[in-house]
């Protein structure tokens, strides 16, 4: 197992490296940091711009491969470079990673836990009213893109707040810096409500569909019949034998769901004014900030592979058939 994990780690690090390099090349050749300086009034002398860009390793006059080598030699020592206006990427990222991870973690946990429960319940109640209601809701939710959902949530929040005359639901930012202590904590929680809903709802719908289908596949199988033949009631046969087994295929979808979650987080952060990695990606592409884009890509690739690894670990934990003993 140890040797296997090591091999897996090495190949994952390699994949992250290649993916991030790919992203760097794409960003370095597609984005034009020079544009930030060119339109200025009064005009900045080209030599000055070149010097500044050289400082930040952003000069398009330097061959892209040379810039890449400079970037990589920084990355391996833990220095991700500077933004287009010379701020440290490391510092910026330090602030933002926590913000994003908090959202992703909560979205994943709430989404998978609630989704699996709801899906399992729907499977047991197949063709009953509750199953149909859950099914239709899941379909409708899955048809609503995150940016529409998030915008609708702000619209609703504004409506509620206006009607009540005070701010019941917060819809911009992470917290109110004016508050402190316990107040700040509850304020943070309040700020979390809408983003969590906008991020988790899609996940819930997704997991509930998967779990329901997997559970129904399992329900028709021989071992559920065996469990009932030995005297278990339908309910215990379902919970002890069917649910547990159907979690395995659902867990293999974890990595996939995480990918959509990452994209969803970008919109959530942007629309609710959180300063996370996703929002940074959008901002830095718009501001032609090559190094920041590369940094976000690096972070995203690492997240995706960690999720894939976790997914494998969960499957291995749930399924004795795939463990190497």
């Amino acid at each position: 197992m140890g040797a296997y994990l090591l091999k897996r780690l090495v190949s994952n690090v390699l994949l992250v490296a290649i993916a991030a390099s790919m992203a760097y090349f794409l960003a370095a050749t597609s984005l034009n940091p020079r544009a930030k300086y060119e339109g200025k009034q009064p005009p900045v002398a080209e030599a000055v711009v070149d010097a500044t860009l050289d400082d930040y390793n952003l000069n398009d006059k330097t061959p892209v491969f040379e810039r890449y080598v400079t970037w990589v030699s920084g990355v391996v020592t833990g220095d991700l470079g500077e933004t287009w206006d010379g701020k440290s990427i490391n510092e910026e990222m330090g602030r933002r990673v926590g913000v994003s991870l908090r959202l992703l973690l909560i979205g994943t946990l709430v989404g998978s836990a609630v989704g699996v429960t709801v899906g399992g319940y729907a499977a047991v109640k197949q063709y009953r009213l509750s199953d149909r209601v859950i099914g239709v809701s899941a379909f409708v939710i899955m048809a609503i893109p995150v940016f529409v959902l998030a915008t609708m949530l702000t619209l609703v929040a504004v409506g509620i707040n206006d009607t009540l005359g005070f701010t019941l639901l917060e819809y911009t930012g992470e917290y109110n810096p004016a508050l402190s202590g316990w107040d700040q904590f509850t304020n943070r929680l309040n700020h979390l409500i809408l983003p969590t809903i906008s991020l988790a709802l899609g996940q819930i719908a997704f997991y509930s569909r998967i779990q329901r289908n997997m559970m129904l596949d399992v329900l028709g199988q021989d071992f559920v019949r065996t469990a009932r033949a030995k005297g278990l009631s339908r309910r215990s046969a379902l919970f002890k034998h069917a649910l547990r087994t159907s979690l395995i295929p659902a867990a293999t979808y974890f990595a996939f769901a995480f990918g959509t979650l990452l994209t969803g987080a970008t919109f959530t952060e942007k629309i609710f004014g959180w300063h996370g990695m996703g929002a940074w990606l959008v901002d830095s592409i718009q501001s032609n900030d090559v190094n920041a884009v590369a940094a976000v890509s690096l972070f995203t690739a690492a997240c995706v592979l960690v999720a894939g690894f976790l997914s494998d670990l969960i499957v291995a934990a749930l399924d004795p058939r795939v463990r190497v003993s």
Partner: peptide
Amino acid sequence: DPLSAFTPV
């Protein structure tokens, strides 16, 4: 079929 008749987990 004794393979599918036992719960695999």
